[in-house]
Write a protein that binds this DNA or RNA. Structure first.
Length: 938
RNA sequence: GCCGCGAUGGUGGAAUCGGUAGACACGAAGGACUUAAAAUCCUUUGGCUAUUGCAGCUGUGCGGGUUCAAGUCCCGCUCGCGGUACCA
C-alpha cells in the first residue's frame, strides 16, 4: 500500500476538527500543562518555512505532554495591531481591519495544514474589542495605582490620597517623578487640579513631558527597545530626541523585582543576561558638591567613590537644569553656542561622532574631600537621563574623562599604586589606592584611603559619605519607563478624556472604548494623530457615552485621547486571556487562573528579550500585586528557537550575453551572479525549463553545462522576496506532506540554533516515512524477540530523553535508526509497532493517526498512553569493553554483562590478550568505568 | 569597548557525567534490478600510507597545560555570530 500523505493528512485534519479532538477544558483530574508560542503578527506576506519552527517544537512538546496524561493548554492567536497594516492602509486606502482579517485567514489556513493541536476556541486577537477591553482596563488600573517601596507592590491611589491628607508626602517611599515635599495642610489647601498634577507623579500609568524617541518618518514616538543605533527597528528611519507630553508606564518601579525574578525562572543564561544588562542595575554613591562662592549644591552619582581624591573637574549634561544656573555671565555666549550645536545633533550623529566636545560653565565646585575648587564643564558625553545628569570626572580612572581631560588640558591625578596614565586611563577596579589624600598635603577631611584595595576604598567611602551626610548610597537602573503613546491609528484607543487639561478615565463599565472608523490614516493637518479624523470621538461625561467632536464646546462633552497604545500593550497579557478567553467579567477568572497558573513552556524568538519579555513580566507583576493572578512570573521555562535564514541560489550570466555558465565553470568567463528563485532549483541543480519560463528575459537563455547539468552557487542570506529565497510551507506540504515538513524542520539542527533553510535533505526524511509506512503492511500478533524489544525500548528511552531536553533533531535520527534496525530484524510484530506509533505521534501526527487506526484502534492516537521504557530489555547479553594500554595498544574484550568493578578487573587481567600485552609485568593501575571502558596502565 | 554564544568530513549535524570522534541524513562514487528512466535496494565515503591480507599513522579553529584518557576541563590566542553601549 502506498503512502498517500495528501489523503491521510486531509482525512485526519478533518477528523480532528469535526470531533474537536484538541478542545481543552479548564479543570479535571489530570495535571495541567501550559505550552505557549509567541503569537504572530499576521503580515501580508504569509508564513515562510522559518515561522513554524518554534510552533512545531511546541506542538511536539504539547502532544507529548498530552500522551503523558496532562491536560495541555496549547493556544494560538494573533498580535493584530501594528504598523505594517497601517502603512499598507496609508498607501492603498484599504482599512487595516480588512487587510488584517484577510491576513489572519491566510495564516490560519497555512497553520492548519501543518497539523497543529491548537484549541482554536481559545483564539485571541489583540484588535478584537472583546480582547482590548482588558488592555484598556489594565491601563486604567495602572493609572489608579502607585508603587510603594515599603510594601514593594502597587497600591491604590486612594491609599496615597489618605496618606497625603494625614501626613503629606515626606514619609512616602514611592516610585515617583521628582516631587517637592509637602505637608498635609499644603495638600488640603490645593485645588483639585493641583492635587491631580501631584498624583500624576505617582501613578504607574502617567502623563508627563518626557524626552522621547521621535521618528519623523513614521510620525510616531518609539520605546527604547524599538530603537537600535539611532534608527527605528521597523523601517530603519532616523530617530531624534524630543520632549513631548506622553503617556508612560512606570516600568522602572519594578526594576529590582524584574531582576530578582530572573533567579526563579528557567530561561537560558544568555537571555537572562540580556535582561540584566537592559535593567542595568548599578550600585554607587550620590555625593553632594557645593558650588564655589555660592550656597548652591548639586548631586552627582558615581560607582567609583574610591576616586574622590582624583576629581579634577565636573561635567554636566547639556540638557541638565543646572546648566543655566551655573553658567556665569562671562561664559554665557560660549555655553549658548555649545547648547545650540548639541541640540541639532540627532541621536545617530551623536553615536557615530565620538569626538570630544564641551564648554566651560565658568563655575567651580568644591570637592568635599579635599576642599579644592574644580571647574564645572558641560559636555554631551554626560547623559541627562541617567544618574543625576552630572558627574565628577576622574580622568586617571575613566577613559571618557581621560579623553576629555587630554583634549581640554585638564589635570590627571592617578590614585592607584604603580598605574601608568601617561597614554591611557587605568579603568580596572583593582589595585592599591594611593594619593587619597596626597602625601605631604594637610588632610582636609579625616578619611584616608591609602593602602586599601579599590573594593575596600569604595566601601569605606560609602560609609564616610553616609555618616557625614554628604550624600547616600544609591542604586541606579538603566531601565527607563516605557513611553506608551503612539501617534497612530491602528492600535488600542486610550479610555481617556481630557477635562481642564487633565486626563480622566472613562468609567470601567463603559469599556471597551471601541476604535472608531476613519477614512484617512495619515496625521491630520493640525499635526494631530489620525484619530483626529474621527467624527464621534468625544466623551459625554454625564451620559457616559460617545459624542461628536463638534459638540466639544458643550458643558459635558470633552475630547478623547487621540493617541493609541503601542504594539506591546496587546501582547503583554495575552497568555492570561487564553486561560479564560470567553470571560466577560474579567481578564481572567480566578478559577481559571488558579487552574492554569502560568505558562510552563514558552517558545519564541530572542528578538523580544528587551521588549515583550520585559513588558509582559512587568504587566504580570502589576496584576499580581492587585491580587488578580496567582503567579508573579508569567513564563516559567522559555526556549528561544533560532532564526531560519534563507539559502539563496545564484546563476552566473556571462557579462553582456544571455548565456549562463554552470558554477564550476564560471571562472573561465567574466560573469555576474544573479539571484534565482530557489523553488526552481533542486539540490543546487537548476531546472532549465522552469528557469526559461520564470521571467520573460530568460526565455531564450543559453546554458553552458557541466556533466549535463546546470549547477547553481549558493549563499546564506535573510529570507526575503528580493533574494528569491523564500520557501513557502504550503509548497513543502503539497510536495512532501505536513509530517515530512514537521520532521524535517526539526531534523535541520538544534532548535535554539540559527540555520539556513536548505531543502536538500528533505528526501531523506520523506524516505524514512515511506519505509516506516511499508513496515505496517503485514502486522503479526506474534511475541516479539528480545532483540526487537531491545530496539523498541532503546528508542523509547532515547525519544523520551530527547523530548525532555528539546533535542528534536536527534529524536528524528533515533526514529530512523529504529526503523532501520527493525527492518534488519524484519520485525512486523504489533507489540513493537504499536508503541512506536505512539512515540511518533507528537512528531508526525497524521501518519501516526493513520497507522494507529490501521492497527485496529478505534480511539484517536492522541488519547493513547506514552510508552515507558523498561530497562530490563536493555540489558546487554555481552558487553564490549575496550581496553587501552597506556594509549599504545587498544583492543576489545567481550565480557558478560552485569559484572561489578572487581570482577571486570579480574576477568580483564585473566584475559589471554591482556596477559599477552602485559608480558609478565604487573600493571600499575587498572581503571574501570562500569559499562564503559577498561584501562590498564603499565 | 563590554557581555553572551560558537568553531567537528564535501554539506547539515551527532557524541547526554572527561571514556572507541564523525551517529543520523544529504551529497558523491560504484553496483543490483530494469529495454530505459524513475523508484527501490546493496557497498564505499575525514585525511594520509597500505590495499594480494591484516592494518598503521593522523585528525574536532591555533598554541600550551591537567589526566591513564580531552571535541568536552584549565590558561593564552585567532576568527565568526548575537546583544549592548559615551550608563559615570
Amino acid at each position: 500500500m502506498e503512502y498517500n500523505f495528501r489523503e491521510i493528512e486531509q482525512k485526519w485534519q478533518r477528523y480532528w476538527k469535526e470531533n474537536a479532538i484538541y478542545k481543552v477544558e479548564n479543570g479535571g483530574n489530570r495535571p495541567k500543562f501550559y505550552v505557549l508560542d509567541m503569537f504572530p503578527y499576521p503580515s501580508g506576506a504569509g508564513l515562510h518555512v522559518g515561522h513554524p519552527l518554534g510552533y512545531i517544537a511546541s506542538d511536539i512538546y504539547s502532544r507529548y505532554k498530552r500522551l503523558q496524561g496532562y491536560n495541555v493548554l496549547h493556544p494560538m492567536g494573533f498580535d493584530a495591531y501594528g504598523l505594517p497594516a497601517e502603512q499598507y492602509a496609508i498607501q492603498t486606502g484599504q482599512h487595516p481591519a480588512i487587510t488584517t482579517e484577510k491576513n489572519i485567514a491566510r495564516y490560519c489556513e497555512q497553520l492548519d495544514k501543518i497539523g497543529f493541536c491548537y484549541d482554536w476556541n481559545r483564539e485571541v486577537r489583540t484588535c478584537d474589542a472583546d480582547y482590548y477591553k482588558w488592555t484598556q482596563w489594565a491601563f486604567q488600573q495602572m493609572f489608579n495605582h502607585w508603587y510603594c517601596y515599603r510594601a514593594n507592590a502597587a497600591r491604590p491611589i486612594s491609599l496615597l490620597i489618605d496618606i497625603f491628607n494625614e501626613q503629606g508626602n515626606a514619609k512616602v517611599r514611592a516610585a515617583a517623578s521628582e516631587t517637592p515635599v509637602f505637608t498635609a495642610e499644603e495638600w488640603k489647601s490645593w485645588s483639585e487640579k493641583q492635587q491631580q498634577e501631584i498624583l500624576m507623579n505617582y501613578r504607574i500609568a502617567y502623563l508627563a513631558d518626557t524626552k522621547v524617541n521621535w521618528c519623523p518618518k513614521l510620525g510616531c514616538v518609539l520605546a527604547n527597545d524599538e530603537v537600535s543605533e539611532g534608527l527605528s527597528v521597523r523601517g530603519g528611519y532616523p530617530v531624534e530626541q524630543r520632549v513631548m507630553r506622553q503617556w508612560s508606564l512606570r516600568v522602572s518601579a519594578y526594576a529590582q523585582r524584574l531582576l530578582d525574578g530572573l533567579e526563579q525562572i528557567d530561561w537560558t543564561p544568555s537571555l537572562k543576561e540580556t535582561q540584566r544588562n537592559w535593567i542595568g542595575r548599578s550600585e554607587g554613591t550620590e555625593v553632594r558638591f557645593r558650588v564655589k562662592d555660592s550656597e548652591q549644591e548639586f548631586t552627582i552619582f558615581t560607582t567609583r567613590a574610591d576616586t574622590m581624591f582624583g576629581v579634577t573637574f565636573m561635567v554636566l549634561a547639556p540638557e541638565s537644569e543646572l546648566v543655566p544656573q551655573l553658567t556665569t555671565p562671562a561664559q554665557a555666549v560660549d555655553v549658548e553656542a555649545y547648547l545650540e550645536r548639541t541640540k541639532k545633533r540627532t541621536e545617530r550623529e551623536r553615536i557615530s561622532d565620538r569626538s570630544v566636545t564641551g564648554v566651560f560653565s565658568g563655575s567651580y565646585a568644591i570637592n568635599p574631600f579635599t576642599g579644592e575648587a574644580v571647574p564645572i564643564w558641560i559636555s554631551d558625553y554626560v547623559l541627562a537621563g541617567y544618574g543625576t545628569g552630572a558627574i565628577m570626572a576622574v580622568p586617571a580612572h575613566d577613559s571618557r574623562d581621560y579623553a576629555f581631560a587630554r583634549h581640554f588640558n585638564l589635570p590627571i591625578v592617578p590614585l592607584i599604586e604603580g598605574c601608568d596614565v601617561s597614554t591611557e586611563s587605568y579603568d580596572a577596579k583593582e589595585g592599591i589606592v594611593c594619593n587619597s589624600p596626597k602625601a605631604g598635603v594637610k588632610p582636609y577631611c579625616d578619611l584616608n584611603l591609602n593602602g586599601l584595595t579599590v573594593k575596600e576604598a569604595i566601601a569605606a567611602t560609602k560609609v564616610y559619605v553616609e555618616s557625614h551626610k554628604m550624600g547616600r548610597v544609591k542604586v541606579n537602573y538603566r531601565l527607563r519607563d516605557a513611553v506608551f503613546s503612539r501617534q497612530r491609528y491602528w492600535g488600542e484607543p486610550f479610555p481617556v478624556y481630557y477635562k481642564d487639561g487633565m486626563p480622566y478615565m472613562i468609567p470601567e463599565e463603559c469599556l471597551p472604548l471601541e476604535l472608531p472608523k476613519v477614512d484617512k490614516f495619515l496625521p491630520t493637518e493640525s499635526g494631530e494623530p489620525p484619530l483626529g479624523h474621527a467624527k464621534r470621538w468625544a466623551w459625554n461625561e454625564q451620559k457616559s457615552s460617545l459624542a461628536s467632536v463638534s459638540e466639544i464646546d458643550n458643558k459635558n462633552i470633552f475630547p478623547l485621547e487621540l493617541c493609541t497604545m503601542p504594539g506591546f500593550a496587546g501582547s503583554s497579557a495575552y497568555y492570561l486571556r487564553y486561560m479564560d478567553n470567553k470571560n466577560s467579567e474579567a481578564l481572567v477568572g480566578k478559577t481559571a487562573n488558579d487552574y492554569w497558573q502560568n505558562v510552563d513552556l514558552y517558545i519564541g524568538g530572542t528578538e523580544h528579550a528587551t521588549g515583550h519579555l520585559i513588558y509582559s513580566r512587568f504587566w504580570n507583576k502589576f496584576l499580581f500585586d492587585l491580587g488578580l493572578i496567582c503567579k508573579d512570573e508569567p513564563f516559567q521555562k522559555l526556549i528561544n528557537q533560532g532564526m531560519i535564514q534563507g539559502r539563496s541560489n545564484f546563476v552566473y550570466r556571462v557579462v553582456g550575453t544571455n548565456t549562463f555558465v554552470s558554477y564550476n565553470l564560471k571562472n573561465n568567463y567574466e560573469t555576474q551572479p544573479i539571484h534565482v528563485d530557489v523553488n526552481i532549483v533542486s539540490n543546487d541543480v537548476l531546472d532549465i525549463e522552469r528557469f526559461r519560463n520564470w521571467l520573460p528575459e530568460y526565455k531564450n537563455a543559453e546554458f553552458i553545462l557541466e556533466d549535463g547539468k546546470y549547477v547553481c552557487g549558493w549563499a546564506v542570506e535573510k529570507m526575503s522576496k528580493s533574494m528569491f529565497n523564500v520557501v513557502n510551507p504550503d509548497d513543502i506540504v503539497e510536495k512532501y506532506g505536513a509530517d515530512t515538513l514537521r520532521l524535517y524542520e526539526m531534523f535541520l539542527g538544534p532548535l535554539e540554533q540559527s540555520k539556513p533553510w536548505d531543502t536538500n535533505g528533505i528526501d531523506g526524511v520523506h524516505r524514512f516515512l515511506r519505509r516506516l509506512w511499508a513496515m505496517y503492511d503485514n502486522v503479526s500478533n506474534e511475541q516479539p524477540s528480545p532483540e526487537e524489544l531491545k530496539v523498541l525500548h532503546k528508542t523509547i528511552k532515547k525519544i523520551t530523553f530527547d523530548i525532555e531536553h528539546f533535542s528534536f533533531n536527534t529524536s528524528v535520527s533515533a526514529f530512523m535508526i529504529c526503523q532501520n534496525e527493525l527492518s534488519q530484524l524484519k520485525c512486523n510484530k504489533r507489540a513493537v509497532l504499536e508503541p512506536l506509533v505512539i512515540l511518533l505521534a507528537p512528531f508526525a501526527p497524521h501518519i501516526a493517526e493513520e497507522l494507529w487506526h490501521r492497527l485496529g484502534n478505534e480511539s484517536t492516537v492522541c488519547d493513547a498512553e506514552f510508552p515507558v521504557c523498561n530497562e530490563d530489555y536493555l540489558v546487554e547479553t555481552t558487553v564490549k569493553y575496550p581496553i587501552s594500554f597506556n594509549g599504545k595498544v587498544r583492543f576489545t574484550l567481550d565480557l558478560p554483562a552485569g559484572l561489578d568493578k572487581d570482577e571486570i578487573q579480574r576477568l580483564a587481567l585473566a584475559n589471554e590478550l591482556t596477559q599477552k600485552h602485559l608480558d609478565g609485568k604487573t600493571p600499575k593501575k587498572i581503571i574501570v568505568v562500569p559499562g564503559k571502558i577498561v584501562n590498564i596502565v603499565l
